[in-house]
């Protein structure tokens, strides 16, 4: 059989070798370049040629007007680490007067037992951003939204400066000996949860993250739950929603009770 020509349709090795190879190549090309891309629901393709180009990796110009707008309002505050860190005395004084409106819930000295946030000593950028988000509708509260609706940008800055100027008052539930739970100290890396303390104090503080020491446990818990459910969504780039969604109810409890007991 060795004298048989290699390239011949009468040579079964040639027919089988070429046939099987071409068959597998064609089959995998049809599956990979046509069928699989068309089977993907998220890939908006206009036809077979479009599917082939997409699967072959031909770069496509993105359509400008196709960007997706969320159906809810988003925060318009651009947060920087320097923001509102150098208040002037006039601003603090104006803020003190304006803050009389807030005292019924947040206390005359920025501290209250009404399970609303304690604002004394809170970073000015934090208070300013939340007021702004209430006004813009990025954060919604039946109590706060009407208050914020009519407040001017300068008034927000003044109120924020005043509360930042007030000294932090030790919590009524102070228990500094309470051991820090794992979620605060190490987070849960396997679930993509960084330690609470790495942004909210203890370990480090990041721009826009509120000081949580001495806050009401009920308030912290309510906020984590509404972040997890998506009812609250004014956190920058979903940072807190991504964290809260992954937290277990026990971890939410532990974090809330821990911070309530801190100075």
């Amino acid at each position: 059989m060795s004298d048989q020509p290699l390239v011949s349709l009468r040579n079964p090795w040639f027919v089988a070798g070429v046939g099987i190879t071409v068959g597998i190549a064609a089959f995998s090309a049809v599956v990979g370049l046509i069928w699989l891309p068309l089977a993907q629901p998220d890939l908006k393709l206009s036809g077979i040629w479009d599917a082939i180009c997409s699967a072959a990796g031909v770069p496509r110009a993105t359509v400008q007007d196709a960007s997706i707008k969320p159906e809810f309002r988003t925060s318009n505050v651009v947060m920087t680490s320097e923001m509102l860190t150098k208040p002037d005395q006039v601003s603090i004084g104006r803020g003190a007067t304006l803050s009389q409106r807030c005292a019924i819930c947040h206390g005359p000295q920025g501290v209250s037992d009404a399970n609303s946030p304690n604002l004394a000593g809170q970073f000015a950028a934090v208070t300013y951003k939340e007021l702004n988000d209430f006004k813009a509708g990025a954060r919604v509260s039946v109590v706060m939204s009407p208050f914020a609706a009519a407040i001017s940008d300068q008034d927000m800055k003044d109120v924020a400066a005043y509360y930042a100027y007030l000294p932090r008052v030790p919590s009524n539930n102070l228990n500094a000996g309470l051991p820090a739970p794992a979620i605060v100290v190490t987070g849960a890396p396997m679930r993509n949860i960084p330690p609470c303390g790495s942004c909210h104090g203890d370990i480090d503080n990041k721009a826009g993250s509120p000081w949580l020491g001495g806050q009401s446990a009920v308030y912290i818990k309510a906020q984590l739950q509404s972040l997890a459910s998506g009812a609250r969504r004014n956190d920058i780039s979903q940072q807190m929603r991504n964290v809260a969604r992954q937290m277990t109810p026990e971890e939410i409890d532990q974090a809330a009770r821990y911070y309530a007991a801190q100075p």
Binding site: I24, A25, F27, S28, A29, V31, G32, L33, L36, P37, I52, S54, A55, A56, G57, V58
Partner: peptide, 17 residues
């Protein structure tokens, strides 16, 4: 990212072989 998903599939198929 520089190689299209379709070619990745084809190479995957031949890797199986």
């Amino acid at each position: 990212p520089q190689v299209g998903a379709g070619f990745k599939f084809m190479h995957s198929a031949f890797t199986g072989l």
